[in-house]
């Protein structure tokens, strides 16, 4: 049974594992934002970024890992982030649709009117 139970599966996970997952999602989202030409792709990247951050909040609020955790504040913060993400998604989607309406494209590289 020893081979079935390597250390990695028997040892409990700590805070940093969760932070690492959050960081990974965050970076993936950021890179997604930086590489996708599709407006909606960028939106998806944003969602990922927010999710990664949210995992951080939740992890810091978790009672399993530290005695001095964030507790209720972390949970509530995570909730607000979710709500704001939803709101952001709605507005961003509306903007994207508007952009599509006006320019008949959703390629953000075409949306460079603010170019100096």
């Amino acid at each position: 049974m020893e081979w079935l139970t390597p250390d990695i599966l028997t040892e409990p996970v700590g805070l940093s594992h969760f932070l690492a997952v959050g960081a990974f999602l965050f970076v993936t989202g950021a890179v997604c934002m930086a590489t996708k030409r599709n407006t909606l792709g960028i939106l998806m990247g944003i969602e990922l970024v927010l999710n990664g951050a949210n995992i951080n909040f939740v992890a810091f609020a978790s009672p399993y890992f530290r005695e001095d955790n964030l507790g209720l504040d972390g949970h509530l913060m995570a909730l607000f982030v979710i709500v704001l993400a939803a709101a952001e998604a709605a507005v961003a989607l509306a903007i994207a649709l508007n952009y599509y309406n006006n320019y008949a494209t959703i390629d953000v590289d075409k949306a460079n009117e603010l170019k100096g």
């Binding site: 953000v108 590289d109 460079n112 009117e113 170019k115």
Partner: peptide
């Protein structure tokens, strides 16, 4: 001079932020 940085490209801005 600064105008050149202002490319209007959204993705580039994300890069700048990162």
């Amino acid at each position: 001079g600064l105008q050149k940085i202002q490319t209007g490209s959204l993705r580039q801005y994300v890069m700048f932020i990162v």
